[in-house]
Design a protein around this nucleic acid. Structure first.
Length: 285
DNA sequence: GCGCAGGGGGTCG
DNA sequence: CGACCCCCTGCG
């Protein structure tokens, strides 16, 4: 039987925007332009064809139980973009540029490890390290004649990790496993955002930026605003005066409130992909 | 083509 | 604040 779900009339959904806006590292772009991802211990393939969104390797039941939540389909992104675009011209351009972005609701543990690995690192290498981790410790899955691997839990990541070639992050990964297994992290989802952040910061290798990524992508805290070098550059060049008296995070919380996390994603995607240079100006202007 | 800097979605001491 | 492990990329 063919396992697929097709959606019509779904606005604000572009696989490329979703997977290439930096929230997720485990995707593959296929020859046909579709994206294949491993999440929730399953393989899924997504593409947009003539306005239809096609989810392959998914039953109706799985779609409702798992993927509707994962792809954040119950959130009205049209309204979010409208609100943000009223803030200023740059946000308006950014929301148009990344109009199909959605914030994925990812696994907490996967976010912890992935964003620890992301610190002071580049994307191809981050993806390589994660790939090797999953290949070594994850469960094997197959789809379309190819092999995929689930993301391993902390209890599975054992022994020598030098094959990961993660450098000094290797130690952080081991530490995160121990922390997750020994202290009680299962209740973190019930904590308020500041308490959850404090708890995340106890993991070595998790600083403010990584903690905010985990909160935003792994704990559905959309009011947080991860500040990386790109976003910092962006805020400084756009809102220079206002930035003198506030930290970037304070500024964002004030400016975007509960939508800060969405704003961050639109800004990040726009800055990284629309041809801006490191000063916040245009590359070829 | 190959070898060599430069620098990377920060964090720690 | 400076170092940092190890590529990945770009230039010579």
């Amino acid at each position: 039987m063919k396992k697929q779900v097709v959606l019509k009339n779904l606005c604000s959904f572009e696989p490329q925007h979703i997977f290439e806006c930096g929230q997720c590292f485990r995707w593959e772009r296929e020859e046909d332009g579709s994206y294949t991802v491993v999440a929730r211990n399953r393989v899924i393939n997504v593409c947009k064809e003539k306005g239809f969104i096609v989810f392959r390797n998914v039953t109706e039941e799985e779609f409702h139980d798992i993927w509707r939540g994962y792809f954040d389909l119950d959130t009205d992104y049209g309204q979010i973009k409208k609100t943000l675009s009223e803030h200023d011209r740059f946000l308006k351009d950014a929301t148009e540029y990344g109009s199909g972005i959605r914030i994925l609701n990812q696994d907490l543990w996967e976010c912890v490890v992935s964003f620890i690995i992301s610190a002071n690192n580049n994307i191809p290498r981050i993806q390589g390290i994660i790939q090797r981790l999953c290949q070594q410790f994850g469960d094997r899955l197959s789809y379309g004649g190819k092999t995929y691997f689930t993301f391993p839990g902390p209890e599975r990541i054992v022994g020598d990790l030098s094959f990961l070639r993660a450098g000094y992050r290797e130690h952080y990964i081991k530490n995160a496993c121990e922390t997750f297994l020994s202290s009680n992290f299962s209740d973190i989802a019930a904590l308020d955002t500041d308490s959850a952040r404090k708890k995340l910061l106890t993991i070595s290798g998790v600083g403010p930026k990584v903690a905010d990524c985990i909160l935003l992508f792994g704990l559905e805290r959309r009011e947080v605003f991860p500040v990386d070098v790109w976003v910092k550059r962006c805020l400084n060049s756009l809102y220079g005066e206002a930035m003198k008296t506030k930290t970037p995070r304070e500024f964002a919380v004030e400016a975007f409130g509960p939508l800060a996390g969405f704003a961050q994603q639109y800004l990040f995607y726009y800055m990284r992909n629309a041809g801006f240079d490191k000063t916040g100006g245009m590359k070829h202007a």
